[in-house]
Design a protein around this nucleic acid. Structure first.
Lengths: 111, 111
DNA sequence: TGCATATATTCCGTTATCGGAATATAATGC
DNA sequence: GCATTATATTCCGATAACGGAATATATGCA
């Protein structure tokens, strides 16, 4: 077996920096392909191909208006990433706690 | 150019499900390679190779004790993922807000 | 019908992964 | 030094991504 396909799950889809960029700008509002092309200044096939991966993995949805296709982000599909990463949050918070304690000690000594 | 290498950044390293598993169990405590082998029941070279990728990208650190190598997670390297994903949190929270409003209306009608 | 616009698809070359099996390195203890 | 334990590395074969260029599809409009 080779590397997990990009369409296997959100983690693999989002590993590609350009696909993260696309999701970021779609976070603001629904956009057509040509609007994305203009905003990011990428070749149109590049945009379409990355949207294709994001759509296959369910991270974006598409709506047709005439010959345009409006893409929007599908946030719930990003939740597995959020759920996986948040348990590690305690490490940063713990560090802050320790820093707080250090600062307390420093303050006590200064008094 | 081909696909972004797994060692390019935390996003790519973490795209592989097995590497996420390794990081999860290292979240609990520092572990030797053989402890990971036993916990996950994978071939030893598989464990070593995945640890190698995680180490290259800075997601784990290593400490030698005799012939053992103790690996620990490097949480701050996971923060870019946390920072990228959390802005999308508002979508789930917004949904809950809307649900709350619906429930309020339902309650009002029941009174 | 014919032309223009919007988007998707295909073909190609280069590159790197992943698992498995085998082997190499390194440290310990006798 | 030699055997043993702990871990890393190498050598496959199969798979697929990515960018670029070219082309195909599909819709709208005169």
């Amino acid at each position: 077996m080779a590397r997990t396909p990009t369409t296997y799950d959100p983690f693999n889809a989002v590993a590609e920096p350009k696909r993260r960029q696309v999701l970021e700008i779609l976070g603001a509002r629904e956009l057509s392909v040509s609007e994305i092309v203009e905003l990011l200044d990428w070749p149109q096939p590049t945009v379409s191909k990355h949207l294709g991966v994001l759509k296959q993995v369910g991270l974006v949805s598409e709506r047709r208006i005439g010959r345009q296709r409006m893409y929007r982000v599908n946030p719930e599909r990003l939740k597995p990433i959020y759920d996986w990463i948040t348990p590690f949050e305690r490490f940063w918070n713990e560090s802050f706690d320790r820093l707080d304690k250090v600062l307390e000690v420093v303050q006590e000594k200064e008094i």
